[in-house]
Design a protein around this nucleic acid. Structure first.
Length: 314
DNA sequence: CGTATTTGACCCGCGC
DNA sequence: GCGCGGGTCAAATACG
């Protein structure tokens, strides 16, 4: 398999930008010459195809702009709602107690929960009190929701968030025909965190993961964290985890405990340009970092080149 | 063979 | 008190 020399350059994927800037010209020139030669030999049909492609590109760009606008609007309204919610919570803090937890037998695993609470001074009241009011203790457990878009056909209720989970139950609930899966964090035996994953009833391609509690250990896949403590480490794709290609995080909204700002859960900064840049940056970073992806991408491109070069069709 | 997942049974809180 | 429904347990099963 001998690839044309310009293929090597084009497959560099900018993994090493320094190198590219140092000795860019010779290869680049050769590449340009090749493209020009291609252009000279181009039949009319190809030009038409190129025009079609340009059209398509314009159309996609316009669509992208539209979507960007929509996203901006959504983010703004999210901000507004969040502010309103926080305002409301601060006015009536006692109403924060949502009846989300029906049952919580505190007698046995009290210790575990204390570890997970991450030093909430509020929750460190006397044990007698917590025995009297198990309900209030349960409320102190931090919960958060994230939404993950996956394939509709993908039946697995797996949300790749960087932690190790052990499934311990599945249940069909009344309000949703899709089963709800229950997971416990299996990385650390004492980790109290639980996760519920269920497809959205409205949009079956949307997975809703509800996290309860806080991890009392670092994220297993957090190998290369570049000081991104407040970043969505829980949502960054895993190097070895195939990452379900199509799955993409859409948004993460912390619904309860709005006071706790040091949560490890992803809280989007909704000042839109930054947020979008960050998303793009994350995707590009994780993709280029993944040797599987670069390998597959290189193979795909070279395969295409090899197939189509003789005929000159693109 | 050890570990993870599946799944029916059971537990428990809540509303009537 | 009873039934419903969400959450958990644990034996059976699958998988590497």
């Amino acid at each position: 398999m001998a690839y044309p020399s310009w293929v090597d350059t084009s497959l560099d994927l900018n993994l090493n930008p320094l190198r590219a800037s140092n000795e860019a010209s010779p290869m680049k020139q050769e590449m340009e010459i090749n493209f020009m030669q291609l252009g000279i030999e181009t039949p009319v049909k190809q030009e038409m195809q190129a025009a079609e492609l340009v059209k398509e590109l314009n159309r996609v760009s316009a669509e992208n702009k539209k979507l960007t606008h929509m996203l901006t609007g959504m983010c703004e309204s999210y901000n507004t709602l969040k502010c309103q919610l926080e305002e409301y919570m601060s006015k009536s803090p006692e109403k924060e107690s949502s009846p989300s937890k029906k049952r919580k037998s505190e007698s046995g695993d009290n210790s575990g929960n204390v570890i997970g609470n991450g030093g909430n001074s509020e929750s460190s009241t006397s044990d007698e009190e917590s025995c009297k009011k198990p309900k209030e203790e349960a409320i102190k457990v931090k919960t958060s929701k994230i939404y993950v878009r996956t394939d509709k056909d993908d039946k697995s209720l797996l949300v790749k968030d960087g932690y190790q989970w052990r499934k311990y139950g599945q249940k069909v609930t009344r309000d949703n025909p899709c089963p709800r899966a229950y997971f416990k964090c299996s990385f650390a035996p004492s980790c109290p965190v639980k996760k519920k994953v269920q497809r959205s009833a409205e949009d079956q391609s949307l997975l809703i993961a509800t996290y309860e509690g806080e991890h009392n250990h670092p994220q297993p896949s957090q190998i290369d964290v570049t000081s991104s403590s407040s970043r969505p480490v829980a949502l960054s794709p895993l190097p070895g985890s195939a990452c379900t290609g199509s799955s993409a995080v859409t948004a993460t909204v912390e619904l309860t405990k709005s006071k706790s700002c040091q949560n490890t859960i992803f809280r989007p900064k909704v000042e839109t340009p930054d947020f979008k840049d960050y998303l793009v940056e994350q995707m590009a970073f994780s993709l280029t970092k993944d040797p599987n992806f670069t390998g597959a991408f290189a193979a795909a491109i070279s395969g295409r080149i090899n197939n189509q070069r003789p005929g000159g069709n693109w």
